[in-house]
Each structure stands twice: as structure tokens, then as C-alpha cells.
């Protein structure tokens, strides 16, 4: 873990959303991200996997400072960006970027593609008109939307979902950011287009040495597109490690359940029931005490209900947060 330059360090990051039920009632907090720590190396691609509502998006947006962190630290290129004001954030905005889930909603429908991709350049006062146009064309050809002139003059509604997502990728990359967070970039696309788009994204990430956080709920795709895996549950990271290691030998009961739940195409599937825990992700306002997975965990022990599980190093790299693996 020591080799390679760190680009991003996240320390005990928390993001709570305040919810007020009534005008005079006491506010309650949705603990969407509740103490996340990890580091990302330059040019590395990691996957963040978790169920819906586990806080993946919140984590991504908090890192990008689209949300104000409640607690913790975000250090980007040795600079603490946790509480920078919006003026001093401009350089951070330029060096980071976000790819969203919904390609239809991610682009302003009333602007032509050229202008959509040009916007970040205009905002960051980059180049003159012709230079910007050249960069727009370069970005379009990088995502293989050719002939670029044709696509540049189109409007979003004239493109398919896959093409829109590639425009969004072009926009995310036009400022040549060093860190890109892709939040379920293909989950709304068609199966066949998904792989195509992910492959494109992975190639761009590798050739441009972009540090990449791939947020997804689709565990099966992660091993094709990143090196390390983080499993998130109820605002916390439960297990991390090399993707193949984790998938082959999941240590956390939740990771195990996740893997069990995912079918590979197989005619035998229909003959058996999947051995998955019942229930659904917990309420984040009053999360379960101790281990957050304990209400659903088949191996739950007494201690799990009261005390937070320890962080236990995995054999090669990564960790697991579970009492089962605690070294006594």
C-alpha cells in the first residue's frame, strides 16, 4: 500500500442530514455516511459497492464537497479541502469531477452538446472560443462520438442513453481532472451498452492515469473495472480488499450474502432458493447499535448487538469489520 503517490485521503468522514419533522420538534439526523476512512492512490481505480441507501452517493458527493461534511477530513493532493469556502474550492472543482447515474437527467436538455461540454471550460475561463471548441471536439472523439461535428450540434433528446452517458463522460473529462467519481455510471443503460461504456471509461482511466472511484451496486462488474473493492453498508465500510480476493473469499457475513444473492446465468438457478438474509437495510436515523448488520446477520453474537465490531486486517490487503474475525 505504500508504493505510489496518494491522491486522496478520507479520514473518519461523516455526513449527517438534518431532518425536521415539525417546526418545533427536535431535529433528527440521517447518518448517511458514518465514519469512512480510506486512501486512494494516483491512477488507481476503486469500487464502492453497497445496497441502495447505504450512503455511496452521499460519500461520493461529500468527497466532492457537493455536501458539507459533518465530520472528518478530506485531503486531496496534500491539501485539506474539508472546509474550504466555495471560492477557494474552484481549483478542486477543476481537478475533480462527477459522472452521474441518470444520463437523461445529467445534461441540460435545452443546450446543444457542444455547449454542454464547453460549460466547464467557460466557467474555469479556459482558452478562447476556438481553443474551447477544439477541446470539446477532442473530448467527443475521446468518447468515440464521431463525427464530432454532428454530435456537437445535437441536443440531448436526439441521443440514446448510451450516447448521452458518453457525453456526460466527455464533460466530466474535459477539464482533465485527476479524480473522477462515477456514481453508478451505467446502471440506467442497456445491458449491451453497459459493458461498452464501462470499457470506454476504464480505457480512459488507464490511459490518462485518472484516480477513479466507481460507485455501483453491481458487484459483478467491479472486477472488470477496478482493483480494490469497498463494501458499504448503512454508512460504513464493512470490508475492503483486492476485488478477486474479496469475491473468492468474502469474510464479512454481509459480503457473503451479497455474493450469494447475485446470480450468474445458470439453468440450475431456478431449482433452488437463494440463501440470503431477509430484511432490508436499516433505518439510518436510528441505526442498529453495535454492528449495523446484526439484525440480519445469521451469525449474530451478543457482543455484536452492543459493541461496534473492530477493524481486522485481511490477509493481503484491506480489512473486515466483524466480530467473527476479531483476534482475541
Amino acid at each position: 500500500m505504500s508504493e505510489g503517490e496518494m491522491i486522496l485521503t478520507v479520514e473518519d468522514l461523516r455526513k449527517f442530514f438534518e431532518l425536521r419533522k415539525g417546526l418545533f420538534s427536535k431535529p433528527v439526523y440521517v447518518k448517511a455516511v458514518d465514519g469512512v476512512t480510506f486512501t486512494l492512490k494516483k491512477g488507481e481505480s476503486i469500487s464502492l459497492v453497497g445496497e441502495s441507501g447505504s450512503g455511496k452517493t452521499t460519500l461520493g458527493k461529500t468527497i466532492l464537497r457537493l455536501y458539507e461534511p459533518t465530520k472528518g477530513k478530506i485531503i486531496f493532493k496534500d491539501k485539506d479541502v474539508t472546509h474550504l469556502s466555495s471560492e477557494s474550492l474552484m481549483w478542486y472543482r477543476r481537478e475533480t469531477s462527477l459522472i452521474q447515474q441518470d444520463p437523461y437527467g445529467a445534461l441540460p436538455s435545452f443546450l446543444p452538446i457542444r455547449r454542454i461540454i464547453e460549460e466547464p471550460l467557460i466557467i474555469h475561463k479556459i482558452g478562447d472560443k476556438s481553443e474551447r471548441l477544439k477541446r470539446v471536439y477532442d473530448a467527443l472523439s475521446a468518447v468515440r462520438l464521431t463525427p464530432v461535428e454532428d454530435f456537437a450540434s445535437k441536443y440531448p433528446h436526439m441521443l440514446s442513453g448510451g450516447q448521452l452517458q458518453r457525453v456526460a463522460i466527455a464533460r466530466a473529462l474535459v477539464l482533465e481532472p485527476e479524480l473522477v467519481i462515477a456514481d453508478e455510471p451505467v446502471s440506467m443503460l442497456d445491458a449491451s451498452v453497459r459493458i461498452e461504456t464501462l470499457t470506454l471509461l476504464r480505457n480512459l482511466q488507464e490511459t490518462r492515469k485518472i484516480s477513479f472511484i466507481y460507485i455501483t451496486h453491481d458487484l459483478a462488474t467491479t472486477k472488470y473495472f477496478s482493483e480494490r473493492l469497498f463494501i458499504m453498508y448503512a454508512g460504513k465500510i464493512l470490508e475492503s480488499g483486492n476485488i478477486r480476493d474479496v469475491i473468492m473469499k468474502p469474510l464479512h457475513p454481509y459480503t457473503q450474502a451479497l455474493i450469494k444473492a447475485i446470480p450468474d446465468p445458470d439453468p440450475e438457478n431456478r431449482k433452488v432458493l437463494r440463501d440470503v438474509p431477509p430484511g432490508e437495510p436499516p433505518n439510518l436515523i436510528h441505526p442498529p447499535s453495535g454492528c449495523r448488520f446484526h439484525p440480519r446477520c445469521p451469525y449474530v453474537m451478543d457482543i455484536c448487538r452492543v459493541e461496534e465490531p473492530p477493524i481486522v486486517e485481511r490477509e493481503k490487503e484491506g480489512f473486515v469489520a466483524c466480530w467473527l474475525h476479531a483476534k482475541h
Binding site: 462527477l98 445529467a106 466557467i123
Partner: peptide, 25 residues
């Protein structure tokens, strides 16, 4: 909408967001 969020992510100011991204919509 995601596109407003995207605009914030690449640094658009509130004024720009209101005038250029919300009003036309």
C-alpha cells in the same frame, strides 16, 4: 436534477445556475 448538481460539481456559480440552468427549464 442531476444536471444542476453536475453544474455545481464543475464549479458553476449560483447565479449561473439560476439564470442559465433553471430558468430555461
Amino acid at each position: 436534477y442531476p444536471y444542476i448538481e453536475a453544474a455545481r460539481a464543475y464549479g458553476a456559480s449560483s447565479k449561473r445556475i439560476v439564470l442559465l440552468y433553471i430558468i430555461p427549464k
